[in-house]
Design a protein around this nucleic acid. Structure first.
Length: 107
DNA sequence: TTAGTGACAGCTC
DNA sequence: AGAGCTGCCACTA
């Protein structure tokens, strides 16, 4: 959303916007889908800057461990949003193989 | 232009 | 299984 459309930020937002409800994507995965392999950290920085009124599903982004990477206050909100979409943590973690996106095939 | 930083990931102990 | 260390990429000062 800023300059043109070939900025890392823009591409990340574009891919993020494609993440369907009830699914989640890892930082690394999102980076890769955005054409920025190994740039997981950049995704974090980018998401962090997103305005709060953004329509992007920022809450569907979690780390490769299936956990929230945000600091406490925000972490709770993210969990709540995820649960609101039907995503329930198992043992405090999200089952990526199950909720991960994209998914080549639906069971 | 160089150095420092971060909402990560992967490997090792 | 959990904690720690290192690597990586793009961004900001």
């Amino acid at each position: 959303m800023q300059k043109s459309g070939h900025d890392a930020t823009s591409r990340i937002c574009l891919v993020l916007a494609k993440v369907p409800e009830g699914r989640v994507v890892t930082y690394g995965g999102l980076a890769e889908l955005a054409g920025l392999p190994r740039a997981a950290r950049l995704v974090g920085q980018t998401l962090r800057k997103l305005p709060k009124d953004t329509g992007l599903p920022w809450h569907r982004v979690i780390n490769a461990q299936g956990k929230i990477s945000l600091p406490e206050p925000a972490a709770r909100r993210q969990w709540k949003l995820l649960k609101g979409e039907g995503i329930t943590p198992i043992n405090g973690k999200i089952d990526l193989p199950r909720y991960g996106w994209p998914k080549p095939d639906e069971l």
